[in-house]
Design a protein around this nucleic acid. Structure first.
Lengths: 247, 247
DNA sequence: AGATTTTATTTGTCTGACATTTAAAAGTCT
DNA sequence: AGACTTTTAAATGTCAGACAAATAAAATCT
């Protein structure tokens, strides 16, 4: 049924791949119980620790869950949107932080995707999502807010905007793009004037979403894109200058 | 430095989390060598197999790579865009196939994101990407092509379109959305007329991209969206009808 | 019948050992 | 001295066997 060809990597990686392929191909369906570790060890002709390493690999991808006890075992897991979120966010965050992705590139991607959501959000947003946007704008106006808290609120605002599209697939895809930007955004020091301008644009977006005006929302988002790129350019220039003369 | 609070899950999950957090926080930087398994076991006061399970979890997420031998060990891995692609695609694919996401929802998300790329692609596409799009259109015109091959070519066409934006972050994000749709698209049986219409729209998109006309590209993509949604609705209706009377 | 105890199954963890790989150290020859 | 070969040590990969802990089902008792 699922053999193990002599190919690449350690045994646990090969076994994990065989099981993963079986799940993707639908040979193992959701909530189905895998054979016990002992049975798998026997089937693949390896020891139980090796099987366990393979199973832990799958568990790390949320492909299976395990349960102890008599009727326990490893079960094919239905990947929830929550699971997928957190995986996407950690992957995206590390991808950006480890690959010298420029602020511009990441920023462009984020806002391009977000503008794809805006028309849908203008059409479908409910009162809750609008209220969240307003609440985050209010928070962003509080004096004494740290830059990090300001950024976190910014993320919350934009997530509410994205969620307004009422499309879980879009929300999932955007989660990575928006959240992964946060570390980069945190490198920016916001002046009072910067914040004022951002909050103003957030207000314009919320207004447009409220009256379901897709075009106005897009215009405001476009302006926010431009402004954020400017801030990023300034911040990077300042950082580079400091790097050359660190006295 | 990195202790292990009494909290949730098995030991290997806790240890994996501790190490993962250290990597995300930047305490362990790219290409840095982790302590050996024996040292980690000693540090966390667990046995070596438990440490190994934790490391395999991290390896499954491409967070570390391991090397055997004298100067071997586990090293913090620089996640490549390639690694991130395949992870995103498997996660997205399973997410869609396991959660009864409607064709409409997935399709809407995919084309919304793709339309976000189109203006950038019109502006920046190079000759290579345009040639790929033309080649795939040519392939799609071949008679006798299976539905699966047609879909695969469709994916290749759209990936070329996305890659035209020359933004690796966008390409990465879109990879999940486009590829994950393929199993759903494969449920559609394309008539000759369907294909003709799709290829015609692909041609319009390529023409628009060639002359760098962002608006024309958007219009064609919008039409393709509508048409694909229609096909999906028809296919789902046909499938449901067959399900009720499977004689 | 219902509550309690026992039992069997399964994952979680540990110990100790050996195999394999690999780089560096030691040794050897020219 | 320098280049080649051999040895060694360190690390991961794998195995075997054992016990602990959880848990559901079966058996037992009231």
């Amino acid at each position: 049924m699922k053999i193990d060809p002599k190919s690449a990597g350690d045994l646990s990686a090969q076994i994990a791949k065989a099981l993963r392929d079986a799940i993707i191909a639908g040979e193992l369906i959701v909530d189905e119980r895998l054979p016990s570790e002992a049975e798998l060890a026997d089937h693949f002709q390896v020891s139980r620790p090796t099987v366990r390493e393979a199973l832990k690999r799958l568990a790390a991808q949320s492909l299976i869950r395990t349960q102890r006890g008599a009727a326990g075992g490893a079960f094919v897991n239905r990947i929830s949107f929550e699971d997928a979120y957190v995986q996407q966010i950690t992957t995206s965050t590390l991808l950006l932080s480890m690959n010298e992705v420029s602020f511009d590139t990441a920023c462009e991607a984020r806002f391009a995707l977000e503008r794809a959501c805006a028309p849908l959000s203008a059409e479908r947003r409910n009162a809750d999502q609008l209220a969240t946007m307003r609440a985050e704008i209010f928070r962003q106006n509080q004096p004494g807010l740290t830059d990090e808290a300001f950024c976190a609120s910014d993320v919350a605002f934009h997530r509410a905007l994205v969620d307004g599209a009422s499309n879980p697939v879009l929300s999932y895809q955007l989660a990575g793009a928006v959240e992964a930007m946060q570390p980069l955004m945190n490198m920016i020091t916001f002046t009072a004037r910067d914040r004022e301008r951002i909050v103003e644009l957030h207000g314009q977006i919320a207004d447009a979403i409220e009256i379901r005006d897709a075009e106005a929302a897009d215009r405001a988002l476009a302006e926010l894109t431009t402004y954020t790129l400017e801030l990023g350019t300034k911040a990077m220039a300042a950082r580079d200058a400091q790097r050359q003369q660190p006295k």
